[in-house]
Simulated scan of single mutants.
Amino acid sequence: MSASLIYDLAPIGSIVAWSDGTPRPPERHKKKLAAWENRNSEGRLIRKQGKRGIGNVCLTPDFTLHEGDFGAGGIIAIRIHRTFSLDTHPTSKVIERPLLDHVRVFDRAGDNAELVHLAVNRQTAEEWLTRHGYPDAVLDEVTADEVAADHVEGRAAV
């Protein structure tokens, strides 16, 4: 699946894997394996941004994936995000979609909102919000229409 299909068809909260198509090197080749893992991984889709301009520069639409967190003792020190523009060429596929009645917690309303948590229901999302500092957070339930949108315009969103 291309980056533009991920942008068009995958709902926010989906787990997306990407690959450059090269085979995984053996474990004993530590540096080659680390480089391969940098080009072949997966993450949760947390944001989609449309075409926008900054001065005279026009930026293409893109999407951002959350790869993981680093920290200790329940404190996140570093968040790893990866942004793909629609003209990138890795092969991607949706591994997992948010389920019906899951609730997405966005950091704010609007086009630049970013998913900060995916909860199994509204009560869990509200409890999560009481423990985390997002005063402008917006809750968004996954609808039956999104779950049923596996086929759009004859293209499968797998």
Rank of each mutant, 00 (worst) to 15 (best):
residue 8 D to S: 14
residue 8 D to G: 10
residue 9 L to T: 15
residue 9 L to M: 07
residue 10 A to L: 11
residue 11 P to F: 08
residue 11 P to R: 01
residue 12 I to Y: 10
residue 12 I to D: 00
residue 13 G to T: 00
residue 15 I to G: 03
residue 15 I to Q: 04
residue 21 G to W: 06
residue 22 T to C: 05
residue 24 R to G: 08
residue 25 P to N: 12
residue 26 P to L: 01
residue 27 E to F: 02
residue 27 E to S: 10
residue 28 R to S: 14
residue 31 K to M: 09
residue 33 L to Y: 02
residue 33 L to P: 02
residue 34 A to E: 05
residue 35 A to E: 03
residue 37 E to T: 06
residue 37 E to D: 14
residue 40 N to R: 05
residue 40 N to V: 15
residue 40 N to Y: 01
residue 42 E to L: 08
residue 45 L to Q: 02
residue 45 L to P: 02
residue 46 I to E: 14
residue 47 R to N: 05
residue 49 Q to N: 10
residue 49 Q to C: 02
residue 50 G to H: 05
residue 51 K to R: 05
residue 51 K to H: 09
residue 52 R to S: 12
residue 52 R to L: 06
residue 56 N to W: 02
residue 60 T to N: 11
residue 63 F to A: 05
residue 64 T to C: 03
residue 64 T to G: 01
residue 65 L to G: 05
residue 65 L to E: 12
residue 69 D to S: 08
residue 71 G to H: 01
residue 71 G to C: 06
residue 73 G to Y: 00
residue 76 I to N: 13
residue 81 H to V: 00
residue 82 R to D: 15
residue 83 T to E: 01
residue 83 T to L: 03
residue 88 T to G: 07
residue 90 P to R: 11
residue 91 T to N: 08
residue 92 S to F: 09
residue 95 I to T: 09
residue 96 E to L: 07
residue 97 R to F: 13
residue 103 V to W: 01
residue 104 R to I: 15
residue 104 R to D: 08
residue 105 V to I: 02
residue 110 G to T: 06
residue 114 E to D: 10
residue 114 E to M: 06
residue 116 V to L: 06
residue 117 H to F: 10
residue 118 L to G: 04
residue 118 L to T: 05
residue 123 Q to N: 08
residue 124 T to G: 13
